[in-house]
Simulated assay, not measured.
Amino acid sequence: MSNRRTNVDALGHAHAPAGPGARIVSLVPSLTELIFDLGLGERLVGRTGFCIHPRDALRAVPKVGGTKDVKVDVLKALAPTHLIVNIDENRKETVDELAAFVPHVIVTHPCTPADNLQLYRLFGSVFDCEAAAERLCTALQSALDDAAALRAGLADEAVLYLIWRQPWMTVARGTYIAAMLETVGWRTLPEEAQTRYPVFEWPLAEQAGRVFLSSEPYRFKESHLAEVEALGKRPATLIDGEMVSWYGSRAVAGLRYLIALRRRLAGLVADQRSGAAAGASVSALKRSGVITR
């Protein structure tokens, strides 16, 4: 167990136990998924249109707009007791407006995969699901340990991670995406950037060993591989953006996905698709009770 207080959010605010009558609105897609994986789905009364997992269960949960364009009146009518927000994904001015009538605003800001340990424990402490939170912590720590062992046996590799096309955009090293990739030894380019999601010129790819084409926010497809390889003069590979950018409970399967992908591309596993390996890890988590849906 971490020595840090488990009920403190990213702004240092302590949160008392919510009790069984909590009414939660989540403005963060990956944390909406975490709420269900912690067994709290029945307490979720509102979510954004970008909250898409778990699909079937979310059909019954009202939408309150987007992560940035929240419909304040709709959210207020739901009478939430708790609002889940994120420093990067939600506008401060919007959160301040909502805080005028939502009693408890839980602010999150995981910057690395390991930060999810505190996130799990925060939700576990506030919403009385400590056992489920600790199961996720155990699963995540195991994945972090396996990623560290893999990285110790391979040289780090510079990569260029594409998130947009025309203009071509990538991620800065200070992002959660870059931290996830670095966990398995993939260091993103550029080394320094003025913005979190910089536009780049193709000579940058000359410093990379590989170019990744993410499935979000731009949906790169196999048809883009030849174009990118011609422009970058480097091998190009499709990558599941949700597995790399979604924190919360998805971090466990995301790390397993990246471990399998790194092993395959390094030639450590012959003829094994990383996507299948990630799917197997999600199934295993559900069978073991770590993920409840």
Rank of each mutant, 00 (worst) to 15 (best):
D128Y: 06
D128A: 15
D128P: 10
D128F: 00
D128N: 14
D128V: 01
C129Y: 14
C129N: 14
E130H: 10
E130G: 13
E130S: 10
A131P: 01
A132E: 15
A132F: 11
A133F: 05
A133M: 08
E134R: 13
E134Q: 15
E134L: 13
E134N: 10
E134Y: 06
R135A: 12
L136D: 15
L136T: 03
L136P: 09
C137E: 09
T138R: 13
T138H: 08
T138M: 01
T138F: 04
A139D: 02
A139V: 04
A139K: 04
A139W: 05
L140K: 12
L140D: 08
L140C: 02
L140V: 03
Q141Y: 03
S142L: 09
S142T: 08
S142V: 00
A143S: 12
A143K: 14
L144S: 05
L144I: 02
L144Y: 08
L144M: 13
L144W: 07
D145P: 00
D145N: 11
D145Q: 01
D146S: 15
D146C: 11
D146I: 07
D146V: 02
A147F: 11
A147Q: 06
A147V: 09
A147P: 12
A147T: 13
A147H: 11
A148H: 09
A148P: 01
A148R: 15
A148Q: 07
A148Y: 08
A149K: 14
A149C: 04
A149M: 10
A149N: 12
A149Q: 14
L150K: 11
L150N: 13
R151Y: 06
R151Q: 12
A152N: 08
G153I: 13
G153M: 11
G153D: 14
L154D: 11
L154C: 15
A155K: 15
A155V: 07
D156Q: 08
D156I: 00
D156C: 12
D156F: 00
E157D: 14
E157K: 07
A158E: 12
A158G: 03
A158R: 15
V159T: 04
V159D: 06
L160W: 04
L160Q: 05
L160A: 07
Y161A: 04
Y161L: 04
Y161R: 05
Y161H: 10
Y161W: 08
Y161P: 04
L162C: 05
L162W: 01
L162T: 01
L162V: 03
L162A: 01
I163L: 11
I163T: 08
I163P: 05
I163E: 10
W164P: 00
W164Q: 03
W164G: 03
W164E: 04
R165W: 00
R165D: 10
P167F: 05
W168Q: 02
W168A: 08
W168R: 03
W168Y: 11
M169W: 01
M169D: 05
M169L: 07
M169P: 05
M169F: 06
T170V: 03
T170Q: 02
T170H: 06
V171D: 12
V171G: 03
A172H: 01
A172D: 01
A172L: 00
A172Q: 01
R173F: 00
R173A: 07
R173K: 08
R173L: 00
G174E: 03
G174P: 02
G174H: 03
T175L: 12
T175S: 14
T175P: 07
T175Q: 08
Y176S: 14
I177H: 13
I177F: 09
I177Q: 15
I177Y: 12
